[in-house]
Amino acid sequence: MFNTFLRENKVVAALLAVLRVYLGYAWFTAGLGKIQSGAFDASGFIQGAIANPVKGPDGGVVYAWYVDFLQSVALPNIDLFNVLVPWGELLVGLGLMLGCLTTAAMFFGLVMNFAFFFAGTVSHNPTDILFGFILLAAGANAGKYGLDHYVLPYINKAIFKKVQTQN
């Protein structure tokens, strides 16, 4: 019942648009600032997350698999991550502000939020994750008053046409 309300109500779509633009602006400005400065380097952050991982009450590392990922994948490929992080933030923000591929943008925004969380950074991530899951659960209704209104029918038509020709 609530899910139907969240996914189909026009008033909710308008409220989701406000929420979407708010989150999008935060993501966009974070990414743009990093790109414009030209000096973004995640290596210090990643080294700090490796050296000081999130620990549980027993003193054990909570996300050991994530620390392994940072050590074996992220740090050796830091040049790639130095591009992916700011451009990812910028594109997530742009997608959310414009309401274009909203659910995809929010999914990748949540992936980044959780990556920061696993590294031990709390900041505004819990709020962003809460709002992000609301937008993700709303599906296409979150982008109803945005470019998704025009883009999604085109994508659905193209996919439906492809499925029909395969059968």
Rank of each mutant, 00 (worst) to 15 (best):
F69P: 00
A49K: 01
N77K: 02
F117C: 07
P76A: 11
M106E: 15
A104S: 10
V73P: 11
L135S: 11
A137P: 09
D58R: 03
A42P: 02
L80Q: 05
K55R: 07
I134T: 11
T121C: 04
V111P: 09
L91H: 00
G93L: 04
L75H: 06
S43M: 07
T121I: 14
G120I: 00
E89H: 09
S123I: 13
L135Y: 11
W87Q: 02
W65K: 05
L110D: 14
F107R: 05
N141Y: 09
A42C: 05
G95Y: 06
Q71D: 06
A104M: 08
I134L: 14
L135M: 15
F114K: 09
A105S: 14
V62W: 01
G38S: 02
D128N: 12
L110I: 14
F45K: 02
Y63C: 04
G48I: 04
L110C: 13
G56W: 01
Y63L: 10
F133Q: 12
F114E: 09
F118L: 15
G109K: 13
F116C: 14
N113H: 11
V54M: 08
L84Q: 02
A51M: 07
F69K: 08
L70C: 11
S37Q: 01
T103A: 10
S43G: 02
S123T: 15
P76S: 07
D128W: 14
L98S: 09
F40N: 11
P76F: 03
Y63V: 01
G93V: 00
I129R: 07
A105Y: 03
F40R: 02
W65Q: 02
G44H: 06
P86A: 01
V111I: 15
L90D: 04
F116S: 12
A105I: 00
S123D: 14
T127H: 12
F107H: 06
F107Q: 12
G99Y: 11
P126E: 05
A51I: 00
A42Q: 07
D41Y: 03
G59L: 08
L75D: 04
L130I: 15
A49D: 02
A39Y: 00
T127M: 15
G99L: 12
V62N: 02
A105P: 11
S123R: 14
L130H: 09
A138I: 12
P126R: 03
Q47F: 00
F131Y: 12
F131E: 11
F107Y: 14
V111F: 13
T102Q: 09
A137N: 07
G48R: 01
F131G: 12
A49N: 02
S43N: 02
A49C: 03
P126A: 02
F108H: 14
V85P: 01
Q47N: 06
M112Y: 12
D58A: 08
N82L: 01
P76Q: 08
M97N: 03
G44N: 09
